[in-house]
Design a protein around this nucleic acid. Structure first.
Lengths: 343, 343
DNA sequence: CTGAAAGCGCTTACAG
DNA sequence: CTGAAAGCGCTTACAG
């Protein structure tokens, strides 16, 4: 039944070193006031000398678990071309550090979700809250997460209920402002390359586009909008079709920068110049955006801040503090070289 | 002394549900053969019904710890413009999943390193191996990591010793091939924008540059090399100076794509055309590279594969399998639009 | 101010 | 094939 101590020094070692009980060591290390300054000092010295640190697992078992917040994301893409996830991880990590809680990265996919239910995952990993990014509404976890009573912040997804909130920007307003900018630049025939049909965000961005047009008394043309699935290549194909069918279009509002890049390629192939003949406006301000084609005009989001917001919201819920059910973060229209006044 | 069970169901609950001891449940769940098929089946059903999963912390304490490999990296940058770290995380995570071990992300900086020694961090977090990226030679952890007997893979850093290996590409050869490509294109006056002076990688890439020139009997000009610190803006300044002092230069070899971008900006400001007047060759093939200036000619690295290699090497060391002390991964010269034959 | 002891949720030798 | 019990490294009521 005995197991080798594996050479790791434990609280027992520092207790022995100092000549006190492990109880006292534990209390000294946890900053309790009922330890004499003198023993406390000796303990701290011994800790230093032995290079000791309490095992987080054991602490957790003992009842002093650090709060840990997990980032649950669907399979990481080959390349994070838009740099979004990286920024998000970065921001959330920072926020967790600042709050003194642990960060945990969890990547999931359909297969993994079959094997281990969300409840089981929670039990196994012992996290206290989760921020979710890129989960699809048809993922098994989707329902489970929403029904669980764990504090949870969702990226760009509508939610309701206790201990739940969503992190997003005001997509409707952002899109509206972007399109209004095009309108102010003299454009009237404005096409839109939207994201995925099933994505909440796509609906909202289309809503903003429609609002801007109607508000400017520009008649809405349903066939001016195409779905590009947030993909460069799909956007290329769709933009080409759209422009061939509607050569009167002089501006393209794209729901992502990658799609804007695809659209610009399509326009070039059609012999149209950007922005002289056609203006193109993107969304996200991915790192590439400022470098491509003398810079893409776009709506900037702030992934780091969004990550921080996610971490913070979950932490607050953990602490029993109230949190808005929808946290809208700032965005910003960045005007660069792919848009111009209509000629 | 009693603590509330907090509602979490434990192994005791499934034991009670089935009517066996927790010993039996544990053994069934761990796949031991000495449990009758019948009880095993009942246990599995109960597990399903109760949505039970063993607490990883408790398992670890009990002696059945999952191997976990940590990625230790210095402070995450604002933006991972080169997408390298993201790819690395991604690859390492995948590899860990494939190997059935846990992945843990650890971000550190000078302050954190002061507060907690590396040995303490190990004890606290209980990881069994670590891959290190972006640690500086003057970081407190640098020595500690090298002296620890924990399996450890270092990115782009020379190491020796048991349980240590480095993950890298053959920088000398890669650079040499890149410069040879420029030479074959007719260039003789070739400048170099190097990275950080103190970085191992910079020395190696310079070595390759020198080798290519000497081999082609092109006299080496020491003042053709400038340090750009891997930064776009520094490279901009240095490239400008270099070209003003040496207008005879017709090609620039840059130790990173971001520096190539800075260099190209500088050339444009000087009224020089790329690649007509001056060819520019980068390094890394960051996501941006293919989009900027009709595409930067560059040496491609494979961050995902490097991450995988790191995770695999550490795992092998953990398993007692032999590992080369230096793992050289593939690279690839990608010819795009910023280089051309000398006019 | 300090220590002996129970408990956290597991695993595993040992004895049947 | 199965179970009682010790142990992993901590924390914390409780008693002094």
């Amino acid at each position: 039944m005995k197991r080798a101590n594996s050479g790791k020094i434990s609280i027992r070692d520092v207790a022995r070193e100092v000549g006190v009980s492990i109880t006292t060591v534990s209390r000294a290390l946890n900053g309790y006031s009922d330890v004499s300054e003198k023993t406390k000092k000796k303990i701290l010295e011994a800790v230093e000398r032995l290079d000791y640190a309490p095992d987080a697992n054991a602490r957790s078992m003992g009842g002093k678990a650090e709060k840990t917040i997990a980032l649950l994301t669907s399979e990481l893409g080959k390349r994070d071309e838009n740099g979004f996830l990286y920024g998000f991880i970065n921001g959330m990590f920072q926020q967790c550090s600042d709050q003194g809680c642990e960060f945990m990265l969890l990547v999931t996919n359909a297969v993994k979700q079959e094997k281990l239910s969300f409840a089981q995952l929670c039990k196994k990993k012992n996290f206290n809250g989760v921020v979710v990014s890129g989960l699809r509404t048809d993922d098994p976890y989707y329902k489970e997460v929403l029904e669980s009573d764990l504090p949870c912040a969702l990226m760009d997804m509508k939610v309701s209920g206790k201990h739940k909130c969503s992190i997003t920007i005001d997509n409707v307003r952002a899109s509206r402002e972007a399109v209004e900018y095009l309108i102010r630049s003299g454009h009237e025939n404005i096409g839109m390359l939207n994201g995925k049909k099933m994505s909440d965000v796509s609906g909202e961005r289309y809503g903003g586009y429609v609002a801007a047009l109607l508000n400017a008394k520009i008649p809405l043309r349903l066939d001016y909008m195409r779905y590009g699935d947030f993909l460069e290549d799909t956007a290329f194909v769709q933009a080409k079709k759209l422009m061939e069918e509607h050569p009167e279009i002089t501006a393209l509002f794209c729901a992502s920068d990658m799609m804007a890049i695809g659209a610009i390629r399509a326009l070039e192939e059609l012999g149209l110049r950007v922005p002289e003949d056609v203006s193109v406006l993107g969304f996200d301000d991915i790192p590439i955006a400022k470098y491509v084609y003398k810079g893409i005009t776009t709506v900037r989001q702030f992934p780091i801040e969004m990550g921080r917001a996610g971490g913070e919201a979950v932490y607050k819920m953990l602490m029993g503090e109230p949190v808005e059910s929808e946290l809208q973060l700032p965005y910003e229209l960045v005007v660069r070289g792919t848009t111009a006044k209509r000629r």
